[in-house]
Structures are given as C-alpha cells and as structure tokens.
Amino acid sequence: MKNIKLIIEYNGKNYRGWQKQPTENSVQEVIEEGIKKITQKEVKLNGSGRTDSGVHALGQVATFYTDANIEGYKFKNALNSILPSDIVIKESEEIDISFHARYHAKAKTYKYIIYNNNTRSAIHRDFSYHVPYELDIDKLTISANRLIGTYDFTSFTSKKNSKKNKVRTIHDIDIVIKGKLIEIRYTGNGFLYNMVRIMTGTLVDIARGKIKEDILDIIKAKDRDRAGITAAAQGLYLEKVYYKDNWKNI
C-alpha cells in the first residue's frame, strides 16, 4: 500500500466546496472519480481542510492510499489528462505511509482579494470581492495587525460553528496593494468556519468607517454580531499548507 500526496489548484466557482456532498458537485468527489478511473478502485481523498462553496485553492493538499502499480509522480499527468479544466494537480508524490494531509498540518495561508473600485469588474468578478467604497488603507492595516496573536475568535466565526474551542493563533497578516486589487494574506495555525471571510468583512467595514469600534474590543466581546459582514466566497483562496513548525522558512 502506498500513500500518495497531491497538491491541487482549483477554481471553486462550479463546486459546492471541497467536501463530498450527497447531491452536490464537490472538488473531492471529482478527483476521487478521476483516481478511480486510473486505478480501477475507489479511494478516499483526505484533504488538509474544507473550502466552502465558491472558494478557490492554489495549494490544497490531499492524500490517498492505493495499491496500484503506479509511481507517485505519475498521478499528476494521469489525473490532469482526465480532470475538468478548473481542477489541476500541481504535484504528486509518494510520501510516508503515516502522513495525513489534515492532522499533520502546522499552519495555513489563506489569500483574500478585494477589488476596490466604484464600478464592478467583468474580469475579476469570479475571483475577488467587489468593494465600491473608498477605503482607509491605514485603518485597514492597523486593524489587521491587531488580529495577529492568540485569541478566542468567537466573534469571527459563524454562529452555526459548533466547535467548543475557538482559540486560534494568527501568525502573520500581509497586505499588498496592486492597483485596484487589495490582497490580504492570513497565516495561522488553524481557521474557524468563515473566519477569514468575517475578518476581511470586518476590516473592510472599519476601513470604510461603518464600524467605529476597535477590533480588539470586537475580539474580546466574543459576539458575532459585533463583527462585520461575511465577505464574499469568491475572493478567498487556500494558498498554502505548511507541515513544518518553521513555516516562515518554507
């Protein structure tokens, strides 16, 4: 038995997220079907984490076990020859049998793209969140930096989130301006359901002056109603998953 690791890029527009659904199209299901065509056997693909409906990935990591007589690196081209064009295997390799894409992850980086212009974009519409308001980038940056650290992020997750432990660590937040595009990268040891999208929505609401409250007070409140909107799914990308503690040097 071999353990095969995949690094996957996908456009989430046409999928109900990563995780397999009973009646909806998912990224996991499409790739599993592709592997079945190659190996003639069903497999279970273990992803590093779920992405929601409409969310994209640049570096999703997943593993599966197989006894097929196929070298690990060959799955890349084999799968890319049959997968739809909005899913691409960037790398494939055989890895230690004990490796698990989710349980061994040390940190993740999510990228969020905002299109900040008074008119919408036909080009960027499926890959960014359109914000037509003038934003104070200094306020956005100061508030983003205050999110760095270890906190209970109850205010920044969906009320539907049933997980008792909502403490997470944000290692770094990096903001890059590219013309009308604002890219925010969040790196942390884990993220709650909708956490990145709610943090982004809150930063936008602070930067446009809708929220006057200090973001640290919102954190301390542990109240979802004190935070901002949930930013649109299409602006979010799972960019990278890290499997070493010294993630900054990877």
Results as ranks from 00 to 15, higher is better:
202 T>C: 05
250 I>N: 13
97 I>Y: 06
12 G>C: 02
171 H>W: 13
98 S>L: 12
193 Y>R: 11
175 I>L: 12
50 R>P: 02
23 T>R: 10
108 K>G: 12
61 V>D: 07
124 H>V: 05
20 K>N: 15
134 E>Y: 14
119 T>H: 07
3 N>P: 08
199 M>F: 07
201 G>N: 06
58 L>S: 02
207 A>C: 07
164 K>R: 14
68 A>E: 02
115 Y>D: 03
200 T>L: 10
159 K>G: 15
165 N>I: 13
227 A>H: 06
151 Y>A: 12
226 R>Q: 14
158 S>D: 04
117 N>Y: 14
21 Q>A: 00
42 E>A: 10
244 K>V: 11
104 H>S: 13
60 Q>E: 09
149 G>D: 08
26 S>C: 04
235 G>V: 05
144 A>R: 10
65 Y>K: 07
78 A>L: 14
178 K>Y: 06
116 N>G: 05
34 G>S: 10
111 K>L: 14
159 K>D: 14
225 D>G: 10
55 V>R: 04
223 D>G: 03
41 K>G: 06
245 D>T: 15
224 R>Y: 08
153 F>R: 06
21 Q>Y: 01
24 E>S: 15
38 I>G: 03
14 N>F: 07
205 D>L: 02
137 I>W: 10
177 I>F: 06
239 E>M: 12
146 R>S: 09
63 T>I: 08
234 Q>I: 02
109 T>P: 11
84 P>L: 03
17 G>Q: 02
24 E>R: 08
29 E>S: 09
241 V>S: 07
124 H>Q: 13
172 D>W: 14
234 Q>K: 09
85 S>A: 15
57 A>T: 07
33 E>N: 14
55 V>E: 00
241 V>P: 12
171 H>T: 09
199 M>V: 09
10 Y>T: 00
134 E>R: 15
98 S>P: 02
27 V>A: 03
30 V>N: 04
75 F>M: 00
143 S>N: 12
149 G>N: 09
190 G>A: 05
80 N>W: 07
118 N>D: 11
138 D>P: 01
152 D>I: 03
134 E>V: 15
17 G>F: 04
179 G>V: 02
198 I>T: 00
213 E>T: 13
100 H>K: 14
83 L>W: 01
209 G>A: 01
123 I>D: 01
49 G>S: 10
64 F>K: 01
126 D>V: 07
205 D>S: 07
109 T>L: 12
173 I>Y: 09
227 A>E: 02
111 K>N: 12
42 E>N: 15
133 Y>A: 08
173 I>P: 11
